[in-house]
Design a protein around this nucleic acid. Structure first.
Length: 510
RNA sequence: GGCUCAUUCGUCUAUUGGUUAGGACGUCAGGUUUUCAUCCUGGAAAGAGGGGUUCGAUUCCCCUAUGAGCUACCA
């Protein structure tokens, strides 16, 4: 029978979401879309101690910014609510009792200090301590006490945890969609805690039960979960459930390639790791995200999609729709990856060209800020954007590269003026000539300007004229073609700016 | 320490038994732009090492090395 694909992204609200989390969410989302399935968002908030207040909204807002929209779950409803694990305690207790009754789990009353003592004792002998089939009979648990004593302990409300009773000696062979078969002997697995002494389920228990109850068909998550996969499989088996398919993604490594990227790394690197801004609750410091730094969500997603996955060809630019069509788990890479910041910038530049409206909106804001918005027509603004968009990498850079279409230079290349101060008289003379020359151009069109300069300006004077004009119009030696600037800002403005530079030079007494 | 996973240019990757090992970012060199950016052309740059299997291995197997993950009453 055909079972519809159901995948989930299940973050834990213990901090801000970073690149890696977004990529995991993205791959889940793409897989669901590709297969006509559903993408579920579940909050794995079983650890109340590590709960961080604004983490959940950071995750939700980040996903929203990226355009990764769940079909079901937090904020989207669905038949399997609640989608917060903190609200599903009664469910976990119910299933845990099954495990207890069937002998797959047991109560353990060991105190923290006893366990710590054991750990250090073992370490002294050079052995790593593990609560497992070898050691469990030396501890204070329901396997080592009479039923009567257990009943008394429970009745007296002694704090306890529930542990999974791991059966040794079995060679497990699990298929991972990305990695193929992975083997593990249960001898190496320990008696993991299922229920903490505060009465809440651990991740392992909650995750397994929820994935089953929510009919998750494919578990797509980071490589750090490979080790736990075997334990999870055994849990499914103990419940008598069929496990889902597994796909473990390669990790996104820190910039130096040493260790996986973590939400705690943001202070070690100037490169952003969060999609949107995050305020450190301790230092109250605001860490900007890709959104704040001027990256477009489309380029961010495109970059992330290709970080560990590639459909096989040479195409690099993919819209979300295209990604949805071509995504497949089999094409995911096995080894850890590094995030290439320069390529991210390149992607952003490519996407700017496809999002001129956003640049337009930003430019309008800049003009309104200066109360000069009303002076310009939409066509003019789009012309400016067309002329300058290739020069910018981020939306907010547009003003620095286009201000001279709107306002006089507020700064002149001082270096150039100082360096040539002995030529001031000469400059002034030429600027006057330029001023007159522009005055003679009627009408002030691009064609006419070109003709006038060609006819009336001596070839070997071009260079100095262009320099002086650029200095007058832009203030510095950058920007689009001088003739185009002249035409765009018009005769009056152009001549004014030349006068302004003349004044500037005149006031410089050297 | 134990277990598990990984290993193609600096980075992301294609090719997966027979290729001059391809592309992209970056980098370098030229050209266009009488500025700057863009753009164009070109170059340098890789199969971790060692054994097998095979007529032939980057591709399959083994070992070694290196890296990573896990080894919590974190997820």
């Amino acid at each position: 029978m055909f079972t519809p694909v159901r995948v989930r992204f299940a973050p834990s609200p213990t901090g801000p979401i970073h690149l890696g989390g977004i990529r995991t969410a993205l791959y889940n989302y793409l897989f669901a879309k590709k297969n006509g399935g559903r993408f579920i968002l579940r909050m794995e908030d079983t650890d109340q101690k590590r709960y961080i207040r604004n983490a959940e909204s950071h995750i939700l807002e980040s996903l929203k910014w990226c355009g990764i929209v769940p079909d079901e779950g937090i904020g989207f409803g669905g038949p399997f609510s609640p989608y917060y694990q903190s609200k599903r305690g009664y469910i976990y207790r119910f299933y845990l009792n099954q495990l207890l009754q069937n002998g797959y789990a047991y109560y353990a009353f060991d105190l923290d200090q006893d366990l710590d003592q054991k750990r250090t004792d073992f370490q002294k002998h050079g052995i790593f301590f593990s609560y497992n089939y070898k050691t469990r009979m030396n501890f204070n648990n329901s396997l080592t006490m009479t039923k009567k004593k257990l009943a008394i302990k429970l009745k007296d409300q002694n704090p306890y945890v529930v542990r999974f009773k791991m059966n040794p000696g079995e060679q497990l062979k699990i298929h991972d969609i990305i990695r193929g078969n992975i083997e593990m002997n249960t001898n190496y697995l320990d008696d993991k805690i299922l229920l903490k002494s505060n009465g809440t389920a651990t991740y392992h228990l909650a995750n397994t039960i929820d994935d089953h109850l929510m009919k998750i068909t494919h578990v797509i998550r980071g490589e750090e979960w490979i080790s736990s996969m075997f334990f999870h499989i055994l849990l499914y088996r103990s419940f008598g459930w069929n496990p889902p398919y597994f796909a473990h993604l390669p990790l996104i490594l820190k910039k130096n390639g040493k260790g996986k990227m973590s939400k705690r790394n943001y202070e070690e690197t100037i490169d952003p790791i969060f999609p949107i801004k995050w305020m450190d609750p301790n230092t109250k410091k605001m860490i900007p995200g890709y959104r704040e730094l001027g990256y477009l969500p489309e380029s961010f997603i495109n970059m992330l999609a290709l970080l560990g996955w590639n459909p096989g060809g040479n195409q690099e630019i993919f819209s979300l729709k295209e990604l949805e069509q071509s995504f497949s788990l089999e094409k995911i890479q096995k080894s850890g990856v590094l995030f290439n910041m320069k390529k991210m910038v390149w992607f952003n530049r490519r996407y700017l060209n496809r999002n001129k409206e956003k640049v337009f909106t930003f430019l309008c804001k800049e003009l309104k800020k200066r109360s000069i918005f009303h002076r310009y027509k939409k066509n003019y603004l789009y012309r400016v954007i067309d002329l300058t968009i290739d020069r910018i990498h981020f939306i907010h850079e547009i003003w620095d590269h286009s201000f001279y279409f709107f306002i006089d230079p507020y700064y002149y290349d001082q270096q150039y003026l100082l360096y040539n101060h002995e030529k001031y008289q000469y400059f002034l003379h030429q600027l006057e000539k330029l001023h007159n020359l522009l005055f003679s151009v009627t009408p002030f069109t691009l064609d006419n300007l070109k003709i006038v300069f060609q006819d009336k300006v001596d070839k070997n004077m071009w260079k100095i004229y262009m320099k002086l004009m650029r200095l007058s119009l832009v203030g510095v030696f950058k920007g689009v073609d001088i003739m185009i600037i002249l035409e765009m800002i018009g005769k009056k403005q152009s001549m004014n700016r030349i006068k302004k530079l003349i004044n500037e030079i005149n006031t410089k007494t050297i």
